[in-house]
Write a protein that binds this DNA or RNA. Structure first.
Lengths: 335, 335
DNA sequence: TGCCGCAATGTTAGCGGTAACGTTTTCGGA
DNA sequence: TCCGAAAACGTTACCGCTAACATTGCGGCA
């Protein structure tokens, strides 16, 4: 019994209308210069009239290339990653690839699940937002032999390509900047202690220890970061360490929340307490006072990731590499 | 000449290892209860050992269903839509569908391009973030006969399913709330005048006109919304209309930016100027003073959209419908 | 014993494209 | 005029999976 066709317009329909074989129609789309102009024009007209939309699934199945790349980010509501995504998206789209996005909710198990899913969709490559994965995920990625970019942080053992910045060095740099500004009783507050936050914390400790300062003023929680949490953490810290003169918040959300809490308490920033954040989100440059922060090159990371993965997709050989995109300290009114 | 196989493990490999036909293996995955337990266990073991990952493209091509749904949002950096996405994602994943996300950059032309792209990917349905589309996009959607949910705003002529809230009524409600609170010289500031913002503006005018108040204090710009822009718009308004006693900002970003500008100018909020936003983002409940806003049920919209589209995917007949999800005015410290 | 019905599995024929190779047409130059 | 190569187009055989139908085997019952 013949299978009922989907009803969609196919290459065959175009071919019949024009009076050529479907291979010729296919060529018109993929290598138009190899088809005579007369035929090409008639095919284009037919495509237009019939509203033909190529079936990518069929194409991918046949050619083994789906022209799509998976981008996995921890969270979509966190604007840190939306800049990365923009860079990736733009770079890949230019090269003719479609980005398929997934979010892991900061869970490597969920990442594993998504890698599995997107492999089933036949993506041609992966852009990941971390260097830490489950063993099974690593095995899947290695077996698939696809280009993989791990972004955001740096690692000594990249799966393939690694583009990011040294979170620990950045944490240390902001710590040193606070010390240089004259602060001595510097606290750290962190939420959702993922690997990157832990690195920043380690960097902060490096800086304080190197200066002979105490690293005890450290308040952390596994809860997800938010403005309100920034206020809560700050309150807790002020209670435990009333003498604290500066706080490095592990990200800008917490820093902004802490700032709002200071305003609520009529605590002068930076007069009574200095605040610093991390990432350089828009809000840090909009509040009053503006917030000192570490500006991370998220857009550039995304663009670079796209560039490198496109190279690989176009045939460049696998060659593990690490790209340090650096960072920038923005000293603003809050310190 | 035989085509080189992709090297991936296929159903056939599993079948050979177990000693059954590949259809049986396929059935193990899709309708396990129709396969004997002995065979099923052996198949599952083989799948495990060989790290088999089904090829969804092939499955979709053969069955005509891809088990994926496209979700188009205007912007991924705007957290307004990330809540919607979360709702959609959760609901659809539960039902076994994968969400493919795209962002239109607030452009209906880009939306059209994405609809085309995702049709080529064979998605089984669409969730859109607007009720306004290009003619061609509408034609594509109608011809494809797929379930479509238009979200965020309401329309009298839904393409299929419509889930949202009445932006104009919400704009009017916040205007009325400001009037009820005693304000009389109320301004409006808006950025990126998309359809929804225009509706909110119209609602604001409705309220003011109904109360016999002037609607002249209206500052708008097509530029994209941001915290900084909120400050700039407020500055411009204060210059033009120094007597203004309240401002309804078309969204929370602008409202927060305006608040920061007030702090910079040492303008007391709400003493000298009242501020109201729109959407109910986290930040409105974190600033000092907290911001009055219209809380929109974005998560619920996403969940409802998912529920309805799943119904349709599972066979419910096409039946244009409109679902008003309402809104809530949150009167906070800024008014 | 023979027949029926159902559960378990197999066979066949695609889905809509594309790689690889084959055939025909065109055309310039010896 | 004829040859040969390149341009233009066609044929075939899949990619990996599934719908629809076909077959097999077994237990139960008259």
């Amino acid at each position: 019994m013949p299978r009922r066709s989907s009803g969609r317009v196919t290459l065959q329909d175009i071919a019949e209308r024009v009076g050529v074989s479907k291979v010729t129609v296919s060529r018109c789309l993929r290598e138009p210069q190899r088809v005579s102009e007369t035929v090409r024009l008639r095919v284009e007209e037919a495509i237009d009239v019939l509203d033909y939309i190529p079936n990518r699934q069929a194409g991918a199945l046949s050619s083994g290339r789906s022209l799509s790349v998976a981008l996995l980010v921890p969270s979509i509501s966190n604007s840190v990653f939306s800049e990365v995504q923009r860079g990736v998206d733009e770079g890949l789209r230019e090269a003719g690839y479609q980005v398929l996005m997934g979010h892991t909710g900061y869970s490597i198990l969920e990442e594993e699940r998504l890698i599995d899913t997107f492999l089933a969709y036949g993506v041609d490559g992966f852009v990941l937002s971390s260097t830490r994965h489950t063993d099974y995920a690593q095995r899947l990625l290695n077996r698939a032999r696809l280009p993989v970019v791990e972004t955001m942080e740096l690692t000594d053992n990249p799966l393939d390509i690694n583009v990011g910045l040294d979170q620990r060095v950045a944490g240390r740099a902001i710590g040193e900047a606070l010390i240089a500004a004259g602060y001595r009783r510097i606290g750290f507050c962190g939420a959702r202690l993922d690997y990157r936050v832990q690195q920043r914390l380690a960097g902060w400790e490096d800086a304080l220890k190197a200066a002979g300062l105490s690293t005890q003023r450290c308040q952390t929680t596994p809860r997800p970061s938010s403005y309100r949490l920034g206020g809560e953490l700050l309150s807790a810290m002020l209670e435990r360490w009333p003498d604290m003169d500066a706080v490095f918040c592990c990200n800008d959300d917490l820093a902004a929340g802490a700032l709002f809490e200071c305003q609520r308490r009529r605590l002068d920033v930076p007069g009574q307490l200095a605040l610093a954040g991390f990432n350089g989100l828009d809000i840090t440059d909009a509040t009053w006072p503006t917030l000192t922060t570490v500006i991370t090159p998220r857009r550039a990371i995304g663009e670079q990731a796209a560039r490198l993965i496109v190279e690989r997709l176009q045939g460049a050989p696998r060659n593990p590499s690490r790209h340090d995109m650096g960072f920038e300290i923005a000293l603003r009114q809050s310190t």
